[in-house]
């Protein structure tokens, strides 16, 4: 059974004149690393808010269609029940942090779940270390830079070890090397602990390599849904305005020039470099 399943999901915000998402039917399987992308304002964030019940319980408005997450029907579950299964990292970390210290923010969710003290200590330290903020654990989150706040928001969610992690442009304020390290951590948890990851991103150059499932949204609807290589290699994705990773783009262009390259569409520099190496050697 799919861990997230929606059927004809349509949602309109209380002040909205038209639906922000329309007829969304998707299936996400346990252990997948899913990338959701599409033009700005296409409904990505709105869809993510449905995954943990913020829509409709907090935002209200009108929700039609079906959605089940981790076997639970969202409409019948309070948000705190969903929070045990789904961790959500918001786009703007300021909306998520409120405690007096980094450590307390990261521990907050665990305290609420009534996790025993020793276990809590272990998990908080684990999350602080993974995200590289152990040294600033006593600082106040609101004094930190945007990038550091994002690390705290991610640590708070990781500490909960939920079945599903939903991240909405989680590293936008981090420098490239910092962002890369965070994505590696998330990818590692995805593979080792089989945590399902749903990542909203425009920057596919940084993230495409981790995904085994891509969903492209456009104007509130699902435009493309499937295998990353197929989708990012397609003309449709480019026309919708998806930022195709540069190695993939170079591959497409060279293919038009009739350079003979292997049939596997590359998603990263490493893959493209290896492919070119073959082609250059065989000449």
């Amino acid at each position: 059974m799919s861990i997230i399943k929606t059927e004809n999901l349509t949602y309109t915000y209380p002040s909205g004149t038209k639906p922000s998402i329309r007829d969304v039917s998707i299936k996400i399987e346990k252990g997948e690393f899913v990338l959701i992308t599409g033009p700005s304002g296409c409904g990505k964030t709105t869809l993510c808010r449905c995954f943990n019940g913020l829509i409709p319980h907090f935002y209200q408005g009108e929700l039609k269609g079906e959605i089940t997450v981790a076997g639970l029907r969202i409409s019948e579950q309070p948000i705190y029940e969903m929070a045990k299964n789904v961790g959500l990292v918001f786009q703007n970390p300021e909306n998520q942090l409120f405690a007096l210290s980094v450590e307390k923010d990261v521990a907050f969710g665990l305290e609420n779940l009534g996790v025993p003290r020793e276990e809590m200590r272990k998990r908080v330290d684990w999350a602080l270390n993974l995200t590289g903020i152990y040294d600033i654990r006593e600082r106040a989150p609101h004094e930190l830079s945007g990038g550091q706040q994002q690390r705290v928001a991610i640590a708070s969610v990781l500490a909960m070890q939920p079945e599903i992690i939903v991240l909405d442009e989680p590293t936008s304020f981090l420098d490239p090397l910092g962002a890369k390290k965070i994505f590696e951590v998330i990818y590692d948890l995805n593979r080792k602990l089989r945590i399902t990851v749903v990542l909203v991103e425009h920057r596919l150059d940084l993230t495409a390599r981790y995904a085994n499932h891509i969903i492209v949204m456009d104007d509130g609807k699902i435009a493309l849904d499937g295998d990353p290589r197929k989708i990012l290699g397609s003309e449709e994705a480019r026309l919708i305005g998806v930022g195709i990773p540069k190695p993939t783009r170079l591959y497409q262009i060279l293919q038009k020039d009739r350079v003979s390259l292997s049939n596997t569409i590359p998603l990263s520099s490493d893959e493209m470099a290896a492919m070119l190496r073959e082609a250059l050697k065989n000449q």
Partner: peptide, 12 residues
């Protein structure tokens, strides 16, 4: 991190 295209050329 260098641009992706640069990364390809550095490897080659």
């Amino acid at each position: 991190v260098p641009p992706q295209i640069t990364q390809i050329f550095l490897q080659l």
